[in-house]
Amino acid sequence: MEYTNHKNYIIDGAGRRWFLKQSSALVGMLALPPLIGQAGTAPASSVPPGLPMKRAITLRINRKAYRIEVEPRETLLDVLRERLDLIGSKKGCDHGQCGACTVHIDGRTANACLLLAVMQQDRDITTIEGLAPSPDRLHPLQTAFVEHDGLQCGFCTPGQIMSGVAVLREGHAGSTAQIKEWMSGNICRCGAYSGIVDAIEAVQKGGRQV
């Protein structure tokens, strides 16, 4: 596993470029030995009682490793979005009810809003940003979503696609009814459901490994 600091990460888009530049102070801090915030090293008097202390963790996201300091209460979703600027995973409810934050943890779907980032070390995390094989090539299901208009506003789309890929990989795309059932953890308020099912069926029929 190769460690990658924020500044080395391949960046896409002006906003991200700017943000990572801004984060250089954070990167510098992370270059310190990974002991900051470990219990016992911070003087107890400086932290009000009951407040969680930061700890340094390493997250493996989209085949890259991120060293980062987090509070134990930070969710994986907030760390992805607010700390690492991986904004593809969306926050629709923050309660595990809508599925917009669906990611893969060791190949299984999970709602990133229900996971604490500190508990995701030593796991392989894949977000929508890590699904396509390269920046200029889409994953087959991404292509199919565009072709079959499996989206409208696009806000639930990253979560739908992450769930859809899992449904295909896990062999739950055997029939229309099965796809609908297994895709029912992801709400689409625009009502793009038939396009979503068509897209998954098209990839299933295409027979390619996804």
Partner: peptide, 17 residues
């Protein structure tokens, strides 16, 4: 805007910094 939306690159208001 399909490609931006299926890759998670479309920035909505809360995605700005």
């Amino acid at each position: 805007d399909g490609d931006l939306k299926v890759t998670g690159r479309a920035r909505y208001s809360a995605d700005m910094k």
